[in-house]
Simulated scan of single mutants.
Amino acid sequence: MDDETVGIALVLTSAVGFGTLGIFGVIAAEEGLSIPSVLALRFSLATVVVWAVRWYRDRFRVPSGRVLAIAVALGAIGYATQSGLYFFGLEFMTAGMVAIVLYTYPAFVVCLVAIANPDRVTRILLVALGLSISGVALITGVDPAGADPRGVVVVLGAAFAYSLYIVVSQRALATVDAETLTAFVLPAAAASFVAFGLGTNTLAMPDGAIGWGVVFAIAILATVVPVLTFFAGIARIGASRASIISTAEPAVTVALGALVLGEPVTVVTIGGGALVVAGVILIQREDA
């Protein structure tokens, strides 16, 4: 296969991997695992694997003090907040609905860009923003199945946190590659959840094969594999095309939620999700 085909396949693999996160999150909750426990183990295990891969490739480098500090802050505050709110949202809504609402984060990025650089906001970006907002409003107001208003607020908070993470990351990536940044974001996020779990007395190891199995699935299949395949895909087809292809992620979560967890999928859910994804695609094409 040529580089373009391989790149598309890698990004689709990444989308599928990230799309499983909500499914495994629901199963972890059913196994009685607390959010701090799951996420502390997720980021700790992912750190070990990512560092091992980078050591094997002879790419293990420590960035400068300023970039390292930014990476730690991104992990301990930005990524930890986004992940914590994402998993908290699963307590109120279906995995598919959480994935759709989270995918409004590019719209939040547009809002942040508008505040910092109003001249960069075009009519197309405003249309894209309207599509994303309309999609969430549609599935929240018309389709109450799985769309608890509390969950929508929580996951919108996750989307906003993720947009801040992306904006700050883009500045850091001017001086360090994405894989190196991720290698230091992951352990910082792990440390944040370890500290939170110890402080709230909610940190505990999984009990039984299913519990450990779902934790390893979250760490490897829903974190390490999609992160590495996404970076590899970007190297072959570029960031803009990769971002557009990755919009398959919420569709994967919705489909797996219906097949694995028996979550309801209505015409309104599909329509709202389509509006959100259309907004994301417009944003990515405008940025290309």
Rank of each mutant, 00 (worst) to 15 (best):
L164G: 00
L164F: 09
Y165W: 12
V167K: 09
S169C: 09
T175N: 11
T175D: 14
V176R: 02
A178H: 06
A178M: 13
E179V: 09
E179A: 09
T182L: 12
A183S: 15
V185D: 02
A191L: 15
V194K: 01
G199T: 01
T202V: 01
L203Q: 00
L203T: 03
M205N: 02
D207E: 15
G208Q: 12
I210D: 10
V215F: 10
F216R: 03
A217T: 07
I218N: 12
L221P: 04
L221F: 13
T223Q: 10
V224S: 01
V224F: 11
V224G: 03
P226D: 06
T229S: 14
F230Y: 15
F230I: 04
A232P: 05
G233Q: 06
A235G: 07
R236G: 03
I237E: 12
A242E: 07
S243A: 15
I245P: 01
P250A: 01
L256C: 06
G257T: 13
G257R: 10
L259K: 12
G262L: 12
G262V: 11
T266C: 12
V268A: 14
V268R: 07
G271K: 03
G272K: 05
L275T: 07
V276S: 07
V276L: 05
V277T: 09
A278S: 15
L282E: 07
L282N: 01
